[in-house]
Amino acid sequence: MNLRYVAGYAWFAGVHSVKENYPYLIAHLALPLSLIFIVGVLSHGALLPFALAGGTVMAIASDGAGTAQELTYLRLEYMYQDFIVATKTGPIDYMLGEIFAGLPWVTPSIILYFALDAVYGMLTLYNLVMTLIVSVLLVVSVSSLAFLLSSRMKHARLIGPYSLIFSYAMTVLPPTFYPFNYLPRWLVTTLAVFPTTPAAVLEQGFFGLEPTAWYMLGILALEALVYFAMARSFTRWREK
């Protein structure tokens, strides 16, 4: 593993570039905050705790859609992947670099949700720690899916609609801002294929809004492993 590349890419493309590209920080907040606003207004505040509990999940999923776009453009428009293929850096280093470079963009959103949770009296040390654990597993699974998706794109323009579909499938369909028991059990099970579903169900449990469905932690961990392995095996890195 080339940790120097992971650290170098995360620093230069992540931390270092945030100051030049701050509008993206706001963009990262746009979808989750909009959904919180709509849910809050439509439910007269009743479902606001659910939307807040699912806020970090939505922020990470939105970032994943951005990652898919970024990786596609790096490969097809900048030829950056080809440039890196001819070094000792491998596909996993490349993906980890992108994951860590994405953290500075998504971290302010996560901090904002924790702040809102605190304002609404929902934040405890327990749900803070558990949210961080869920976030790590979610970042790995969502980024792996984004990497897989981007590597299948033949033209850069195609990633536009696919990343939108990816984003909606990850954020709007799963119970990220409403109680998961609103859905029939079979649908929750079906939607569990999107890692945001087990993550959102777990968050609702950790915040005391629903009983904690611990088996969802197993599903999320399994998805992180399987999607990561799929990204490693099926991603087009060096062309055949």
């Binding site: 120097r4 170098g8 790096l74 900048y78 440039f83 070094t87 000792k88």
Partner: peptide
């Protein structure tokens, strides 16, 4: 250096070179 390769546009020239060197260890 691939045909039509472009440096990543949202980072500086110096950072791009250093980032590439990190890929080389």
């Amino acid at each position: 250096v691939p045909q039509e390769a472009k440096p990543i546009q949202y980072i500086s020239a110096s950072d791009f070179v250093r980032m590439y060197l990190s890929a080389r260890g």
